[in-house]
């Protein structure tokens, strides 16, 4: 296992050798390329204990790509992902996902409760239909997100914030131990953002891990336990207090990006003739 980061606290290294508790999430050497143009290079990190993890970086830094690659939604050039010590493919039932809002056809003929019920499909497996137990669970999840009484609305008739909360309710219905959320706060009202953060904190207190792609730097310090700064490469990963520093943020957001871009262009069009 490569120790790539100076920021990695020492107690984590000890935890890692602890056989009884494998890390929640271990990403090793993940590289993603799009048409021979690298988008993420050699991402390497491990979440060792339940936490609220924020993924932060500028636009186009590959935050969503990182989540999608971890979940196996994108072809990966190299690297492995392990969840609770096993390949992610074998642990899908323990992994929840909240995709970006744009990924869905909002005119689809489906009601709110049916969307939330989809969270239980993974556990149901092939051919079996959701029954009263699943319905009850779905209603509870809706109530937890404050969406009582909306269950038979068509999904497109809700406001943006409500739609996002339906997605979260669906994730809750997955009853997973590790969640990935792709910009759940994008385009929602302040009340919804507050409600979402509250649920995220509850999940963490129940011993679950939530990995959130986030775009609003202001709310980072007080909300997240761990922070992952990414800009095509992993800039830093560690406790928020250690990582949320002016120096590292500058490294993530600004500065010498020009040469990286130039290289990317070179990679795309073929190399210059020497």
């Amino acid at each position: 296992m490569n120790q790539s980061l100076a920021e990695m606290p020492t107690e984590m290294k000890h935890k890692r050798t602890d056989i009884t508790a494998p890390p929640v999430l271990e990403v090793h050497d993940l590289t993603v390329a799009y048409r021979e143009k690298p988008v993420l290079w050699h991402i390497d990190f491990a979440v060792t204990k339940p936490a609220l993890v924020g993924i932060v970086g500028p636009n186009g830094a590959g935050k969503s790509t990182l989540i999608k690659a971890i979940l196996g939604l994108l072809p990966v050039s190299s690297g492995t992902v392990e969840v609770f010590g096993r390949p992610l493919k074998k642990e899908r039932l323990h992994v929840g996902y909240v995709p970006q809002r744009e990924s869905v056809d909002w005119d689809f003929p489906i009601q709110v409760l049916d969307v939330v019920l989809m969270g239980t499909y993974g556990r149901l497996g092939w051919f079996r239909r959701p029954r009263e137990t699943e319905r009850k669970l779905a209603r509870e999840c809706l109530a937890r997100m404050g969406l009582e009484g909306l269950e038979s609305r068509q999904i497109g008739q809700l406001s943006g914030g409500q739609q996002q909360r339906v997605f979260l309710a669906r994730a809750l219905a997955q009853q997973a131990d590790l969640y990935f959320m792709d910009e759940p706060m994008a385009g929602v009202d302040a009340a919804t953002e507050h409600a979402i953060f509250q649920v995220l904190a509850e999940l963490r207190d129940q011993g679950k891990t939530v990995v959130v792609v986030h775009h609003d730097l202001r709310s980072v310090p007080e909300k997240f336990d761990q922070l992952l700064l990414v800009n095509q490469r992993l800039i830093a990963y560690g406790p928020t207090s250690d990582v949320f520093t002016a120096d590292l943020l500058r490294k993530t957001y600004g500065g010498r990006l020009a040469i990286l871009e130039e290289l990317a262009v070179a990679l795309k069009v073929g190399r210059p003739t020497p």
Partner: peptide, 29 residues
């Protein structure tokens, strides 16, 4: 220097990049 990657992590990316660094980019670097 800019990404604080450990020494044993440098070779692989450079192995890819070296084929694309023409004289101009080399000079700039």
């Amino acid at each position: 220097r800019d990404f604080q990657l450990a020494q044993d992590h440098l070779h692989e990316p450079a192995e890819i990049a070296e084929h694309f660094l023409g004289p101009d980019l080399q000079r700039e670097l």
